[in-house]
Design a protein around this nucleic acid. Structure first.
Lengths: 247, 247
DNA sequence: CAGTGGTCTAGACCACGAG
DNA sequence: TCGTGGTCTAGACCACTGT
C-alpha cells in the first residue's frame, strides 16, 4: 500500500490527513464564511474514502472552530477566528501565533532541592533534586514575562549542564523523548512587585497575570512545574470555548 | 429496533451513551488512577457493540481528561481532575462547580441602541436595538463580578419586559430556543476603578480580571456580548489544556 | 420530499509497547 | 510475539432541515 512512513508521526500521512489539507485550503482560499462545505458523502466519493473518514476530518475541523455543523442542513465555514482555540503551547509558539518574535534574557539554570511548593506540585519529596530554569521571556526583544520552570532531575539528567536554546519543550522531546501532552493551569490576576516590575521594565503595581502550570506526559507523569508572570499591557488570554455537548 | 425516543436530545440514548455511563461509574468507583481500562475489543464484545462505538466513547473520555491512552499499551484512568476542562459555562454553573451558591444583585434591564463597541461585537448597526442586562453577580452572597450583557433585541423580543431569574442561558433556551454553543473570550488583567471597587466591596486599584465574551449559537449567529469584571482575590481561572495532536 | 449529519455494524491492516 | 490503540472500508438506519 506504500502508505506508511516509519519516521512520520501518527496522523501525518493517511487519507484523512490529505483530505484535511485540502479542506483547509478550501476554507482559507475558496470559500466565504457561512458558505456550505461539500457534504460527507460527496467528499467520500470525490476522495476515494469512506464516509466515516470524511466525517472524522470534518468533526476535527469543527472542534478547531473552523466549521460548524447542523444536522439536516450541512457543514458551514465559520467566521475567521480572532482568537485561538485553547491548547497547550510553548511560549515560543504562543508568541509566533501572535506575530511576535520570541526570545530569552538573563537565563539561569541550576540544580536545587524541590522544597515544599515545587515538591507538592511535582509530587516529589522536598529533598528531591529539580532543575530550575529562570528566564525573562521576550517578544520582539521587549520583556513579556518572567518564567520559573522546575523539572525533576531524575527525568532530565544533565539538563543543567547543557544550555538550552529556544523552546524548552522541543529540547525535552529531542533530548529526553519527553512530550508534554497535557497541563493543568491556573491563572490569577495580580499586580507586580518591585523586583518583577524592574525585570519587565514597567511601573511598580502594574496589573499582571500570574500563571501556574503543571505539565504531564502521555503516561501521566509530572514533567514540569512552571510559574510565570505576564505583563498585562502586552498580553491577553484569548480563547474559543464550547458548551458541553451533553450532560 | 425501538432505540429511538423522539423527545430525547442526540447522544442521550444510543448504545454509546449507555457504555459511557458504565465507564464513568467504573472510573469513579471501581478503579484507581493509572489502572488500565478494558480494551476496546473487550468492551465491544461485552456490551454488544462494535469496536468503533467503544472507541468513540473512550476517545471522548480522553478529551474530557478522564482517561489517557497509549498506543500498544492501553487506556488508563487519569488522576482526579483538580481543575475543570475549558468549556463554556454560565456564571451560575461555574460557581456551583466551585461549590459556591450563585446569585445576583442590583439587576437592571433596559433597551438601548447598540452603539459603536457593542455594535461591532455583535455585528449590528450602531442604531440597532439591544437589550442590556447589568448585574452584580454574587457567590455565597458576596460580590464576585460585575457583568454587562448585551443581546440583539431582534433575537430576544420582550426580554426587557419579563424579568429573568437565575441563568440567562437557561432563559434564552427555554423562552427563545437560543442555545449558546460557542464563545470567543478574551481575558485581561487590570485593576479596579473607583466605581467597580465600590460595587464589588474591595479597595480601589485591587487586581481584577476583565473578560469580554461573544457568544454564538449553532448557526454562528452572534447572540450575546458580555463584559465582566471579576475580583482577583476570589477568582482564578483554572483549566486543563492539551497539546495539539498534529500539525 | 430529498439531502444532510448522527449513529451503528462487521470486518480489516498497521504501528507501537511490553514481556 | 501478542495485545493494544490508530486508521480505514462498505455498507445501513435514523432524526432533522429546508423546499
Amino acid at each position: 500500500m506504500s502508505v506508511s512512513d516509519p519516521t512520520a508521526p501518527p496522523h501525518r500521512s493517511g487519507k484523512g490527513a490529505q483530505l484535511r489539507e485540502h479542506l483547509i485550503s478550501l476554507i482559507e482560499s475558496g470559500l466565504q464564511p457561512h458558505d456550505r462545505m461539500p457534504a460527507e458523502r460527496e467528499l467520500a466519493e470525490a476522495f476515494g474514502v469512506t464516509r466515516l473518514t470524511a466525517r472524522r476530518v470534518l468533526d476535527r475541523l469543527r472542534q478547531e472552530g473552523r466549521v460548524y455543523r447542523s444536522r439536516g442542513a450541512g457543514t458551514f465555514v465559520s467566521e475567521p477566528r480572532i482568537a485561538k482555540t485553547v491548547e497547550l503551547t510553548s511560549f515560543s509558539d504562543d508568541m509566533r501565533a501572535r506575530g511576535l518574535r520570541p526570545g530569552s534574557l538573563h537565563m539561569t539554570v541550576r540544580l536545587m532541592a524541590a522544597g515544599a511548593e515545587v515538591g507538592a506540585a511535582l509530587q516529589l519529596s522536598p529533598r528531591d533534586k529539580v532543575v530550575q530554569i529562570y528566564r525573562v521571556r521576550t517578544a520582539d526583544d521587549a520583556p513579556m514575562c518572567i518564567e520559573h520552570s522546575y523539572l525533576p532531575d531524575a527525568l532530565v539528567p544533565g539538563l543543567a549542564d547543557a544550555p538550552l536554546e529556544g523552546s524548552l519543550y522541543e529540547a525535552l522531546a529531542s533530548r529526553y523523548g519527553l512530550d508534554v501532552e497535557k497541563a493543568e493551569q491556573s491563572i490569577h490576576a495580580t499586580v507586580l512587585d518591585t523586583g518583577a516590575a524592574v525585570a519587565l521594565g514597567v511601573p511598580e503595581f502594574s496589573p499582571a497575570f500570574q500563571v501556574r502550570r503543571i505539565g504531564f506526559d502521555a503516561r501521566g507523569r509530572r514533567v514540569e512545574y512552571a510559574q510565570s508572570i505576564y505583563r498585562a499591557d502586552r498580553y491577553s488570554y484569548d480563547m474559543v470555548i464550547y458548551r458541553r455537548t451533553e450532560g
